[in-house]
């Protein structure tokens, strides 16, 4: 599990994952459904370029060729919320 605070950056092996501003919005879950809830723009920076994924609980993303699940997106005062990611087997 990896916890990333809003406005900060986690460095994976080849990708830097930055968490932008969390707010309640629509996002796409891994099962293809559209959900509404707290979600964060996750900016994925690599040497090859950058990508942006809007992640909320239940959505998936690929980091360094591995699949990760967004377990929790929790807004907090002063934009110090957090995003918790879990690597899938």
């Amino acid at each position: 599990m990896i916890e990333i605070t809003e406005t900060t950056v986690w460095t994976a092996s080849r990708t830097r994952v930055a968490v932008g501003t969390i707010f309640e919005r629509e996002y796409r879950a891994a099962d293809g459904t559209t959900r509404t809830g707290p979600a964060a723009p996750l900016y994925l920076y690599t040497d090859q370029g950058e990508d942006k994924v809007v992640g909320g609980a239940g959505s998936h993303l690929t980091i360094d060729d591995e699949e990760w699940e967004v377990v929790l997106v929790e807004p907090r005062p002063d934009n110090r919320g957090r995003v918790v990611l879990r690597r899938l087997a």
């Binding site: 406005t7 932008g20 501003t21 707010f23 919005r25 723009p41 005062p77 002063d78 934009n79 110090r80």
Partner: peptide, 24 residues
């Protein structure tokens, strides 16, 4: 500036469209 407690989704999306991070 930080995002307001009851900020509208439209405003939050507008800020994000400019790639601005709140409270940064």
């Amino acid at each position: 500036a930080g995002s307001a407690k009851n900020e509208s989704a439209e405003k939050s999306e507008d800020r994000e469209d400019y790639h601005i991070v709140a409270h940064h």
